[in-house]
Write a protein that binds this DNA or RNA. Structure first.
Length: 326
DNA sequence: AGCGTGAGCGCGTATTCAAA
DNA sequence: TTTGAATACGCGCTCACGCT
């Protein structure tokens, strides 16, 4: 009989509180033992484990129901939960799990323990909007950091996984991409909105992460704030913003040599300037500005006057349309 | 050069054993 | 029964490597 019990318990991957309790109570009823100590050998568990297994029933209502597989709750899990309750108090733990108990949600062991310990943070928010958007996320491309991050947090909230690794296995996305996506998304939220979120690709996001790592969050935030103030409402692209972070953008004051002269024949004007390549990106805006400037000029104006107005326009309104004049 | 990937490292957590 | 400590294990992180 002893061997049977031993074999029974050993055959479980993890030692189950319910099994231990059942066998112990059974043995008591049958008179096989009268104390916990006498039962240890037969049950094949330590006295500490037996003690904790029997404490399972004392856990607050609803907690056990959170487990996907209550039959697999181990004495160690009971210990963790008891310790957290003793440390943080029943009320706090109740707040952490209440929402899910009420909703009748089920989670794997790790997820329940993480929740009891108060480690499930951002994930709760994902659950809130999960209903209407889960399918959309799954069906739409997962390749933007925003989507992957949402999916990750959603999975944590629903107990599908508790780690990047678990998520990686489930979604067949590399662990690194998941981690980066979560980091990128978190970083994005801590910064002012500098460009459209649809432009927040992995490439862009990783560059931001690199800056965050190099400079530290505080410096990055300061730079972001000043860029935000400078470029607010200009619809800057992610590329421009990154250039701005790296001080690679040309400023109006850098365009010190802007000169317009006649080209060959009667149909060419040549714009001379430093940073010609940079300015060339804005040729459409330049053309537009020239046309609108011409409209304001009377036909009878002097050629010199035209030249002056044009160059004023180029310098301050067109040449660097994405920056405010400083 | 930039990007993604995988191996190895260090750390925190889970588990077990032992003593108070 | 609780608490402390040792050990096992899994995870995230970094870095080097190879590919595009």
């Amino acid at each position: 009989m002893t061997m049977t019990h031993n074999g029974l318990l050993r055959s479980f991957k993890k030692r189950s509180c319910y099994t231990i309790e059942f066998l112990y109570e059974n043995g008591l009823a049958e008179g096989k033992w009268t104390t916990q100590a006498d039962a240890l050998n037969a049950l094949g568990v330590s006295q500490a484990e037996l003690s904790l297994a029997l404490k399972l029933a004392e856990l607050p209502d609803g907690l056990i129901e959170l487990f996907e597989k209550p039959a697999e709750i181990t004495p160690y899990s009971v210990r963790v939960m008891r310790e957290v309750i003793a440390r943080d108090g029943l009320e706090i733990v109740g707040q952490r799990i209440g929402e899910h108990v009420a909703a009748g949600n089920k989670f794997p062991t790790r997820a329940v323990l993480a929740m009891v310990k108060g480690q499930v943070f951002a994930s709760k928010q994902s659950l809130r909007w999960s209903r209407e958007s889960e399918n959309r996320i799954l069906k739409s491309t997962l390749d933007l950091p925003r989507n992957i991050s949402h999916r990750y947090h959603l999975g944590v909230a629903k107990g599908e996984w508790t780690s990047y690794s678990g998520c990686s296995r489930a979604l067949n996305i590399s662990r690194k991409n998941i981690r980066d996506a979560v980091y990128i998304k978190a970083l994005w939220h801590s910064l002012p909105v500098l460009f459209a979120e649809t432009e927040l690709t992995f490439a862009v996001g990783r560059k931001l992460l690199a800056l965050d790592k190099d400079w530290g969050r505080q410096v990055l935030l300061q730079r972001a704030q000043s860029i935000y103030l400078k470029m607010k409402g200009m619809g800057a692209t992610a590329e421009t913003v990154l250039r701005e972070f790296n001080n690679e953008n040309v400023r109006p004051s850098d365009l010190s040599r802007v000169r317009i002269r006649r080209g060959r024949g009667t149909k060419r004007l040549i714009i001379e300037c430093n940073h010609a390549d940079f300015l060339f990106q804005y040729r459409r805006e330049l053309e537009f500005a020239i046309r609108s400037a011409l409209k304001k000029i009377t036909v009878t104006s002097e050629g010199i006057e035209i030249n002056r107005l044009l160059s004023n326009h180029l310098c301050f309104k067109t040449a660097a349309p994405r920056f405010s004049a400083t």
